[in-house]
Design a protein around this nucleic acid. Structure first.
Lengths: 118, 118
DNA sequence: CCAATTGTTCAATAACTTTTGAACTAAGGA
DNA sequence: TCCTTAGTTCAAAAGTTATTGAACAATTGG
């Protein structure tokens, strides 16, 4: 029931860099960073790609150690593995996210936030 | 006679990340960073790949805006575009290089330094 | 139980990337 | 001029990654 994740010391720099080198995945990471602490399910990213394709990209991110996916019912709650990434590659995630913010060419997740109680 | 390079504002984050995601290219960048200021010709990297393949990887780095190649006689002198990269993506190059230093899985350029005068 | 929701898997295809050797260009030195 | 050195280009082959639709599994709510 729990999905496979590398442990922190297995996270590889070239793999993380190439995984982040895809605009769709970079947009996912950027959105996760902007909502840090808030668990998000996969369908939050349907702006970026089809459901099938999203499954593929989210698996890449998870297998690279960039994200964690926790099974909650029929949902997979996705979070950034910030502590692990910061421990392994200090400053990397922050500089990537900061750079991504200023990049107008990157896709973005649309603003369809769910109203959290009236 | 001068090779094509993107200008600083044309350097793209996803392209830089995917270019750095290749272990051979990461090793090249790491070595360039360790010899910063010293112009190096392509053959300095023959430990990492064949001449033809090196030409391919060095072109990728140049086209991404990571390196500059200046034609000097029959040589191409390769340098890191640190100022441009730092301006565009502050902290990114430093964190990538710092992370690469601690990665035992990455290939490295061998220690065959030329004696600079007796 | 049934239907809807959430997300995965599979196989196919398309598209790109990497690697190779042979042939080539361009400059420099004898 | 001829030879060497430095590096590129080209076409082919091999390998990898991305994208798609159809079928599937698992949980939840009615």
């Amino acid at each position: 029931m729990t999905l496979p994740h590398p442990n922190a010391d297995q996270i590889s720099l070239p793999i993380v860099l190439s995984v982040l080198g895809d605009p769709t995945r970079l947009a996912i990471v950027r959105y996760l960073a902007s909502k840090e602490g808030v668990p998000l399910n996969c369908s939050r990213f349907l702006d970026l790609a089809s459901k099938t394709n999203l499954s593929y990209h989210l698996a890449k991110l998870r297998e690279a150690g960039v994200t964690r996916a926790d099974v909650v019912g029929t949902n997979r709650m996705i979070t950034l593995r910030r502590a692990d990434l910061d421990a392994r590659f200090p400053g990397l995630l922050d500089s990537v996210i900061a750079a991504a913010v200023h990049d107008p060419a990157l896709p973005a997740v649309g603003g369809h936030d769910i109203e959290v109680s009236a």
